[in-house]
């Protein structure tokens, strides 16, 4: 397998230098840019497999970079170096079409892991599930912007947190998520809450969706490790 090409965009030279050499040592090919305009120019020339992009930058910020790429039908994966926190930000995140988020300051190992995970999920040239308005898995339909859920044509009600959790699991199907990772996805930051919090929400999702933990169609428990969405997930269309 050839080394993945990573375009790293940040206006702080110290961060560019440190992360570029770290990712290079981890077996990736890295180019850097100091602002959004430079990033788009380099992207057009170099065709990276993925962009890792800061948000606040001079000339053109990270969110605008993603919007411009998506508007041009370019689905190169992007990891934005910011936080997805509040639900309002989450719907903005859905519209802007970034593939993942990582909040500064972070462990460079964590960035490496996220980049690999996004690359594993990405199908070249195709929009990722995180950009879909609707997701479908068998009988289950999730409208991500309206936050509504149907099972076999009948609408069901989930609490806001359970619906966020289902959203995260369905946009990252077939991946094992630790409880800590799921909590962070729910809150946008690490919260030292009991891992029971995630178990409670998964129990709610199963109860409401009528999913059997022993023979799951949707959410599978991976013993002592975490959870995985085990159904096949497709993009849905709005009726």
């Amino acid at each position: 397998m050839t080394a993945p090409r990573v375009l790293l965009v940040d206006d702080e030279e110290a961060i560019r230098d440190g992360l570029a050499s770290f990712l290079t040592r981890s077996g990736m090919e890295v180019e850097t840019a100091g602002d959004g305009e430079a990033a788009l120019a380099l992207h057009a020339r170099w065709r990276p497999d993925i962009l890792v992009c800061d948000v606040l930058m001079p000339r053109l910020d990270g969110r605008s970079v993603v919007r411009r790429l998506r508007a041009a039908g370019d689905w190169t994966p992007v990891v934005l170096l910011t936080q997805v926190g509040e639900s309002s930000e989450r719907s903005a995140a859905l519209e802007e079409g970034a593939d993942d988020y990582l909040n500064k300051p972070f462990d460079p190992q964590e960035l490496h892991a996220r980049v690999r995970a996004v690359l594993r999920r990405a199908v070249p040239g195709e929009p990722p599930l995180v950009s879909a308005e609707r997701l479908v898995s068998g009988d289950l339909v999730l409208d991500r912007t309206a936050r509504r859920v149907w099972v076999a044509g009948r609408e069901v009600m989930l609490t806001p947190k359970a619906s966020l959790l289902l959203d995260y699991l369905m946009t990252h199907p077939d991946e094992l998520h630790t409880r800590e990772r799921l909590l962070e996805a729910l809150w946008g930051f690490e919260l030292a809450v009991s891992s029971r919090a995630v178990d409670h929400r998964v129990a709610e999702i199963r109860r409401v969706l009528g999913d059997d933990a022993a023979a799951p169609r949707y959410v599978e428990t991976v013993q002592s490790l975490g959870y995985r969405f085990c159904g096949a997930v497709q993009r849905g269309v709005r009726p």
Partner: peptide, 18 residues
């Protein structure tokens, strides 16, 4: 003001002693 310097420190550190 603190998140960029701290990110840079953590990113640079592994390079000091790979």
């Amino acid at each position: 003001e603190m998140k960029n310097p701290v990110t840079a420190m953590r990113a640079a550190l592994p390079g000091v002693a790979p």
